[in-house]
Design a protein around this nucleic acid. Sequence first.
DNA 1: ATAATATATGAACATATATTCATATATTTG
DNA 2: CAAATATATGAATATATGTTCATATATTAT
Lengths: 124, 124
Amino acid sequence: MSPSKKTIKTAVCAQPLAHQKAAKKLKQNAPKEEELYDLADLFKAFADSSRIKILWALSASEFCVCDLADALGMTQSAVSHQLRLLKQSRLIKSRREGQSIIYSLADEHVKKVFSLGLEHVREK
Amino acid sequence: MSPSKKTIKTAVCAQPLAHQKAAKKLKQNAPKEEELYDLADLFKAFADSSRIKILWALSASEFCVCDLADALGMTQSAVSHQLRLLKQSRLIKSRREGQSIIYSLADEHVKKVFSLGLEHVREK
DNA sequence: ATAATATATGAACATATATTCATATATTTG
DNA sequence: CAAATATATGAATATATGTTCATATATTAT
């Protein structure tokens, strides 16, 4: 296609890393690569309105699956799939009670994350 | 396939909302529907390892686009696209400096969210 | 044991989204 | 103004993900 390029566009600056010191500091203090992936995965659990609603509900009270479905206007299946993801992220826990499985928040992290998030969202 | 179903499976409990009081309380205190969507959107910004890396870098120091690309091993284009998303979420801000655009965190929320997230991830 | 109820799950489908490629825009330099 | 540099962006593609449908598993009641 192109006859012959005079210049080759590079992906990086001609003078890369103008902020050498900052970059150095970055590498020193950086969490392990794996931790950053875990972090992203954690926030993925919050990154869907269905799961947000479920978490919000559970922050008010524990609920069984079908009550959640009913309260949130979701199908039982959809709720169940999402509960599995939330449990994998260790944000919720469950216990059996007769035929029902009762879900609740695993710890206080969820509420804290919510508070921070709302704080940000509500700031114009 | 099925000759004729005797029972119709419903999506909800036979006795829905066993936790009536909790459900009531839920509806009273609930953030507006829209706020929950905004919350989910906010966390979507954190829900990708590329953006997490970018945010982490910016929590150490401000950077121009190509330095970010260089430091994180991403293309200039990919970084630029993600920076746009992060800016839309009001997590970062930018200013021009000659040919470069310098990006930095918009406020302290990001660092706080990071701390909470890491806390959760690091708890076995 | 059989029926009813509650929950979980695999497969299929539709949608969302992250990256790449090519190129446009904006600023500085010669 | 032309060339070089830095950044932004639209289109295409590949992948990830949320929901639905059908059905499996588990518990309780008769």
